[in-house]
Structure formats: structure tokens, C-alpha cells
Amino acid sequence: MNRLLKKLKKGWELIALFHQGAFLDRRMAVVRKEAFDINDNLMLLLFGDFIGIPNPMSYYMLELLPLVADELAPWERRIQNRRFILAEKGAQYDFDT
């Protein structure tokens, strides 16, 4: 009885894992991309003056610097290399599947 229960449990875990890999990951990647995009835009509002966009309260934003310092360099790279906005947006919708 116990062994059967264990086997059933193991089987269920495998099904769940397959389900995640086959259906969820792709969807979640889209959501995650959207979240990162919003965050990038927020960074632009917070620290736009780093790349030449004036900010009415850049002085107050300094106190956020220690918290986001690690994100800053990759963000600057991403935001400055945005050459194909359309392609970037298009990639969010799976035209290829």
C-alpha cells in the first residue's frame, strides 16, 4: 500500500513537471519579460538623468541607488542598445509557434 502511494506520488510529480515544461514555462517567460520591461521603464524614470534625461527629483532618487546599484549597469546596457523596439515587442508574442 505504502509503496503504491509512493509510486503514485512520484508519478504525479513527473506529470506536474512535464506540464510546467510543456505549457507553463513559455507563458511565464512572457509574463516575466513584461515584468522586466516595466521595471526597466521604472529605472528610466528613476535614473534617467544618468543617460541624459532630466529628472525633477534626481536628488531624492539617490537614496535608491544602494538598493538598485547591481541592476544599474545591465540596465544601462540594455536601454542603450535598444535598436529594434518592434522586434523586441514582437518577440513577446510567439509568432513562430
Binding site: L24, M28, A29, A35, I38, L42, L45, L46, P56, M57
Partner: peptide
């Protein structure tokens, strides 16, 4: 007054990003 409105907007945006992250992190 002026900055209050601005900062409200920032908080809202950050919360939106977080909410999406939470959805994405349900299995992570």
C-alpha cells in the same frame, strides 16, 4: 503636492512589475 503625485506614480509602476513577477514566480 507636485512630487507626491510623481512618487505615487513610481510606486504604482514598481508594484505592477512586482505583481507580474509574482505571477511568473509561482512555480519558481
Amino acid at each position: 503636492r507636485v512630487l507626491g503625485v510623481w512618487i505615487d506614480h513610481l510606486i504604482e509602476k514598481r508594484q505592477k512589475a512586482r505583481k507580474l513577477m509574482e505571477v511568473a514566480a509561482r512555480y519558481d
